[in-house]
Design a protein around this nucleic acid. Sequence first.
DNA 1: GCCAACGTTGGC
DNA 2: GCCAACGTTGGC
Length: 152
Amino acid sequence: MNYWLMKSEPDVFGIDHLKDMPKQTEHWDGVRNYQARNMMRDQMKKGDLVFFYHSNCKEPGVVGIMEVVKEGYPDFTSWNPGSKYYDPKSTEENPRWFMVDIKFKRKLKRTITLTELKQQPGLEEMPLIRRGNRLSIMPVSRQEWDIILGLE
DNA sequence: GCCAACGTTGGC
DNA sequence: GCCAACGTTGGC
């Protein structure tokens, strides 16, 4: 089993949105970055656990845990001209973008803030805390996962 | 709201 | 195939 971290802006789609979805499940659409796409398409497996990270907000940090419930499949918003994620270069015959389905598991008791993560030994290698890194989906090692959960 | 860092686009 | 210009991300 693998561990991951996915970023989302809480004003757009936060952990409470996910929690309130039918079956507490939603497709993770709108990712338009090739590195992140490749991870969803090729590497994320059913049962993998994922940290939900709130970005671009007052208190950026890890807020909860979710689970991959459906493995990579084409992001249909990419071929819907009415969607803000529309990409004319992506078609049903030759999809360019992929997504996974994720299910809410639980919220952390509190937000583990980016500030704390930066100060925590053992997390130095995470792309998350490197300045200027914009990757919205990233792998988390077992050790990193345990360190972060240990801060809860 | 600012702006640094980065990815993508497109002219040549 | 290079690289400048541009758009986006995301912390602060």
